[in-house]
Design a protein around this nucleic acid. Structure first.
Length: 373
DNA sequence: GAGGCGTGGTT
DNA sequence: TAACCAAGCCT
């Protein structure tokens, strides 16, 4: 790792901010420095690309224009607004933080990074972003871009996946950040990281800061940033039960402590669990076992059938689901006193927050329907 | 500190 | 397809 002189730091700040002034992206959350606007955008942008966030941000602001509106919103409405964006605990934590702010702080935003970080869902990055952008505090905001940009500029070889490395980068950036325009400095680093100093196909030859980029000058770009490999997603097998009744289809809400918490899916049966407790089951008999399990839970006699192309695959960060669709059409309404779910007519599907895997399941089922007629 | 938590785009 | 990446946080 190299170090910069005070003169180099000054020159870097001037170069970076001049480039930013001329080339900054015009994004919906850059209209002003309202802490609520900065906060919502930063939460949405966590591990999520700018182009994905833009329409969500605009809809969210139309529905929940203030901290008060957010605090008062029904949770189902929040999840619906977040549908398809992923990491759904973000929006539930945002509502908790909104309520924290209103009850503990009288609705007043704290101005310091340390105080901001006490709000649930606001970690070191987001606290730094809000403190610098909304309140002009000279705090680093170290995201993936900052890790990549500064590791290359200064040839920092700390493994960025280790929590300790964040402190090192924050110390380094604290010395380099513009004390006059910290918010613009942090945003300029992000714009740089998503234009010239990208993870793939970077264009350092035309980068405004190429002469400050030590790894580039040394031909060692491929060595930075240093990051350890991630784990492969674990395979999981499920059956999805598509139960059609006169009143609609059966849905179940995911428990609050599991993946896709509080979202709505067709009822799932864990096939791996079933195979473990009944090792004698084969591909055919396991479907009967799923049926028996459903019948015993609902006390509704029914026959599950395999549909034509029943397998839906969906990959999460750490799990890969292989879901087999089973279908049953019932002539009478379900008695839900023994089952934690609800029957929803197709017309009302849009009121439920569906994760992407449920959208895939429904598409696969609909495709099968078309083949019937 | 390591692993859980989503999705969409790119290669 | 598999692997990697993108404005991370919580436990």
């Amino acid at each position: 790792m190299i170090e910069w002189s005070d003169a180099t730091i000054k020159e870097f700040q001037t170069t970076l901010l001049a480039w930013y002034d001329a080339n900054r992206r015009d994004l919906p959350w850059r209209q002003d420095h309202d802490p609520y606007h900065v906060w919502v955008s930063e939460i949405m942008l966590q591990q999520t690309q700018v182009n994905t966030v833009i329409p969500y941000y605009q809809r969210f602001m139309a529905s929940f224009p203030t901290v008060e509106k957010l605090a008062q919103a029904p949770e189902e409405q929040l999840l619906k607004a977040w549908e398809g964006l992923g990491y759904y605990s973000r929006v539930r934590n945002m509502q908790r933080a909104a309520r924290q702010l209103l009850t503990d702080n009288g609705g007043q935003w704290p101005h310091t990074k340390a105080e901001l970080q006490k709000l649930v869902g606001i970690g070191p990055y987001t606290a730094g972003a809000i403190a610098s952008i909304a309140f002009n505090q000279p705090e680093p905001a170290v995201d993936g871009n900052a890790f990549r940009v500064f590791s290359q500029l200064l040839e920092i070889d700390a493994d960025i996946t280790k929590p300790q490395s964040r402190s090192l980068f924050e110390e380094v950036i604290r010395k380099i950040i513009s004390k006059d325009r910290p918010g613009d400095f942090n945003q300029a680093i992000m714009d740089l990281g998503s234009s010239y100093m990208t993870a793939k196909n970077p264009d350092n030859e035309h980068s405004p800061v190429k002469k400050f980029n030590q790894a580039y000058l040394d031909g060692r770009l491929d060595e930075f940033p240093v990051r350890s490999k991630r784990l492969k997603p674990v395979d999981k097998q499920y059956f999805a039960l598509v139960i059609e009744t006169p009143g609609g289809f059966l849905f179940q809400q995911r428990a609050s402590n599991e993946l896709l918490a509080k979202l709505w899916l067709f009822p799932l049966v864990d096939a791996d669990q079933l195979k473990e407790s009944h090792p004698e089951l084969n591909a055919t008999t396991i479907i009967k076992a799923v049926e028996e399990k459903f019948v015993s839970e609902t006390e509704i006699q029914t026959e599950l059938q395999l549909i034509d192309t029943p397998i839906v695959n969906h990959t999460f960060t750490h799990q890969k689901w292989h879901v087999t669709l089973l279908y049953a059409k019932l002539q009478e309404e379900l008695d839900l006193s023994h089952f934690s779910g609800k029957v929803v007519p197709v017309k009302k599907f849009a009121t439920l927050a569906w994760p992407t895997v449920q959208k895939k399941l429904w598409q696969a089922f609909k495709k099968r329907q078309i083949q019937l007629f």
